[in-house]
Design a protein around this nucleic acid. Structure first.
Lengths: 230, 230
DNA sequence: GCATATTTGTCCGTATGTATA
DNA sequence: CTATACATACGGACAAATATG
C-alpha cells in the first residue's frame, strides 16, 4: 500500500508550522519521487494520495502545481498528474544547459572562492568514500552535489535554483536506467581531477575537463537510456 | 476600479478551452502585472480579484501559486500574495544570470543560425521604429525581445524559459523606475551593433559588446533604482 | 495592551465536464 | 454508445492568524 508515504509527516505537522501544508506535502512527494518510490510514469491520484496523507484535494492540488512547475510532474488536463517521463530530447537539453551553466560558472570563478571550494571537496570525498564502501546510489548523490557546487561558483541564487531543478530532473533519468552503478562509478575520479585544476587556479583546464566530462556522460546516458513508452 | 481586468476573459472562455481556468487566470494576472496595472508591492486580495474575475477562491489560489513560482508574486503566510518588490540584490543577480547565459549563448552560437537571426533582426528593427515614433515603452519591450532571442541562440527550451522568467522579473524593476525612457533609449543602437557582429560571424566581438552592454545597464539601473520600502 | 473585524488556511460536499473501458 | 471513474470548479464552512480601532 501507499500509506507509507505518510511517514514522518505527522511529526513535522506538530512542530514548526511556519510553512504551509502545500509546501510540506510537496516536499514529501518530492522526496518520494527523487528516491524512486514513485517511478516515472506513475499516475498520482488526487483521492488516493490525499487520503493517504490526510489532506484535502485542494491542498494536494496546490502541491501538485508546485512539483509540476519543477518539472517533476506533468499535468494532463482532466487526466491528472503523472511522474514525468523524460525523453531523449530532454536528456540532450539537460546536458546543453549543464554545459552552458557549469562551464560558464567554472570559467568566471574567482581563483580562491572560499565559500564553495570546501563544498566541492566534501562532495568529491564523499563520492570516493561511497565508492570504496560500494554504496552505488550514494555515488550518484555525491556526484549531483558536486555539480550543484560547481554551479554555485557562479555566486547566483537563481543559478543555484536552476541547477537544483536540473539535478532533480536528472534523477528521473537515472531511475529508468538499468545499471546506475556502471554509469556513476567512473566519474568519481574525474570529479577529483576537475577539483584539482580548480584548486590550482587553472580554470581553463577545469572547464576543458568539465566539457568532455559532460559530453561523455551525455553520450553514455543516451546510449544506455531507454525511455519507457507512454 | 479593478473590474477592467476581466477584459478579454469571457471570449477566451467560449473558444478553445484546452487550458484550465487557473492557467488562464494566471495569464490575465501576469499581463496586468507586467504592464504595470498592479505595481510592485500591491496586495492581491483573494476576495476582490476572485469576485472581479468571477472565479472561486480555490481556483484563484492556484493561479497565485503559479505566479509565485514565476517570482512575480510573493506569498506571505496568512497575509496573502503581493506583487514582488525586487531588491538591489535581485537586480545584481538578474544581471549575473544574464551575463552568464547570454554571453555563453552568443559564444557558442553557430555562425549562421537560420532560426533566430531573423528574430534578432526583427527585434532590433522594432526597437528602432519605436524609437523614431517615440513609443518609449515599446522600446523596452523590443529590447526584451532582442535579449530573449539572444538566449535562443543556445537552442535550449530550458534556457528559453529561464530567459523568459528573467525578463519578466526585469519588467518589475522597470516599473519602479522614474524614467524608463532615458534607460532604454541608448540601447537600441547597441543592439544593432551586436547584431552586426553576429551577422559577420564575429561571435567573440559580439560577446564582448554584450558584456559591456550588460555591465553598463546594470550600473545605470542600480544607480537609478530606488526600491520602495516594504 | 485588548477586543473586534477582516482575511487567509484548510476542508468538505457537489455539480459538471472529460476521458476511458 | 453507454457507463464508470475521475478531474475540474464552485460555494460554503470554520479555525487561525493578522490587521485595525
Amino acid at each position: 500500500m501507499a500509506s507509507d508515504i505518510t511517514a514522518g509527516l505527522e511529526l513535522d505537522r506538530a512542530l514548526l508550522d511556519r510553512t504551509g501544508t502545500a509546501e510540506r506535502v510537496a516536499g514529501v512527494l518530492r522526496d518520494r519521487i527523487t528516491e524512486g518510490f514513485f517511478p516515472p510514469g506513475t499516475r498520482l491520484s488526487e483521492e488516493a494520495i490525499g487520503a493517504a496523507l490526510g489532506i484535502s484535494r485542494n491542498t494536494l492540488r496546490e502541491a501538485f502545481r508546485l512539483l509540476s512547475h519543477e518539472r517533476l510532474l506533468v499535468h494532463q488536463l482532466n487526466r491528472g498528474v503523472f511522474v514525468r517521463v523524460l525523453t531523449a530530447e530532454d536528456v540532450i537539453d539537460l546536458y546543453r544547459v549543464r554545459r552552458l551553466v557549469e562551464c560558464a560558472a567554472v570559467r568566471q570563478a574567482k581563483p580562491a572562492d572560499p565559500d564553495v571550494l570546501p563544498a566541492l571537496r566534501d562532495a568529491v570525498a564523499e563520492g570516493e568514500l561511497a565508492l570504496r564502501e560500494a554504496r552505488w546510489r550514494d555515488i550518484g548523490t555525491a556526484n549531483m552535489r558536486f555539480h550543484c557546487a560547481i554551479g554555485r561558483l557562479a555566486g547566483s541564487p537563481r543559478v543555484d535554483e536552476l541547477m537544483g531543478h536540473v539535478v532533480a530532473e536528472l534523477r528521473l533519468v537515472f531511475h529508468v536506467m538499468k545499471n546506475p552503478r556502471a554509469f556513476h562509478e567512473p566519474y568519481v575520479a574525474r570529479n577529483r581531477e576537475i577539483l584539482g585544476r580548480l584548486d590550482a587556479g587553472d580554470n581553463a583546464g577545469a572547464e576543458r575537463l568539465l566539457a568532455t566530462y559532460l559530453d561523455d556522460a551525455e553520450a553514455q546516458l543516451l546510449h544506455a537510456y531507454s525511455p519507457p513508452e507512454t
